[in-house]
Design a protein around this nucleic acid. Structure first.
Lengths: 198, 198
DNA sequence: ATTAAGTATGTGACTGCTCACTTACTAGGT
DNA sequence: ACCTAGTAAGTGAGCAGTCACATACTTAAT
């Protein structure tokens, strides 16, 4: 079945992500990806010059999805604290929907040679952090966040929380709800960062 | 050169860790490990029935080192807060000395088949967390830690901090001092968890 | 002490497999 | 006619694990 290149590329990217979720990013071979799409292995190389390029396309896709989710999270409210909560929830949600995402950060694919891919993910993390920092700064200005902690440092604490949760989750304690636990612990951390009112 | 099996095993384990630091855990082939030790590739299989068994031995070694460092950290003082600080510093120090450690958590080696290895690392993390929880509980009893945060939850915040720092570091922002930054942010987090005295 | 037997450590050559990527060729759309 | 998306059949490299054989140590009987 012939399809337009654009469509095929999108199909392949989706299949790679799906496969990576199922079997881990490092197990995604060109053959496996191809047969998941339903074409021959050689066909992949019509669309991507190399496997690394394929992963770059995947990273682009993921970056787009994340950016969308972030924007959606920010659209819900104006309250800085709520926006931080929403951003964190969005991040946890994306991780839960794409469990391979944290694994990708340490995969062979990313850490060997493919410096572009690495840079793409570093950029993503920094963008997320910047969003958090901005909201925290607004929160301080609005007087609902402790002034003695710099927004940058508080943001490190919060993003670390996402990463710690992801590790915990992927290390495979079942009956561990990434989103539920994440929300719970996030609330605790936010309470610590919030100005006491009693 | 002939050596005792014990010695050789230790040599191999050390070489594997070293190689993993240099080229990433997934690039450590039996051949590479062997020639790093200075023996033939086949010789590895005199000492380990399979590559997975080799990695298990590495995990055992790492577990031992970590346990030692933890004990040493606890030996320094009786003050719960200081002990938490020392434990965290020890953990960051070990990660800095063995950068492959966080990568190992997500390596193909660990996440494919080798369920034993996975369990070994999960056990390690839980043991660390338990140590932190114990100190935090003592801290609460001594009245220097907020009571409204459960020790288990505070421990999650702290261990997440280690993991977040490790990710930040290994994503390759150079001029990022794992230990220095870690210490700084840890202090901030601890201040939040500490009873206000003013 | 010498030696013979047995065992632990080591080797080079090889097997069978998987993988990314190539090449020569084919069919559908315009 | 021509380009575009596809294919089947390779190619060469890298990998874990095996095997037949060699060489160093240990032990115990002479």
């Amino acid at each position: 079945m012939r399809k337009s290149a654009e469509l095929r590329k999108a199909e392949i990217v989706a299949a790679v992500l799906d496969l990576a979720d199922q079997i881990g990013p490092d197990r995604v071979t060109t053959g496996a990806a191809a047969s998941a799409v339903g074409v021959s292995q050689a066909a992949l190389f019509r669309h991507f010059p190399t496997k690394a390029a394929m992963w770059l396309a995947v990273a682009d896709h993921v970056a787009g999805e994340l950016a969308m989710e972030w924007q959606r999270a920010l659209a819900g409210t104006d309250n800085p604290l709520d926006r931080v909560t929403a951003l964190m929830a969005a991040q946890l949600g994306q991780i839960a929907a794409t469990p391979t995402l944290p694994m990708l950060l340490f995969s062979r694919e990313l850490n060997v040679g493919n410096e572009d891919l690495r840079a793409a993910f570093r950029g993503l993390l920094m963008k997320f952090q910047a969003l958090i920092v901005a909201e925290l700064a607004r929160g301080q200005d609005a007087g609902c966040l402790r002034r003695e902690v710099a927004p940058e440092d508080a943001a490190v604490l919060l993003t670390s929380l996402v990463q710690g949760m992801a590790i915990r989750w992927s290390l495979g304690a079942r009956n561990f709800s990434l989103i539920g636990e994440g929300k719970r612990v996030l609330e605790i951390q936010l309470r610590l960062l919030t100005v006491k009112e009693d």
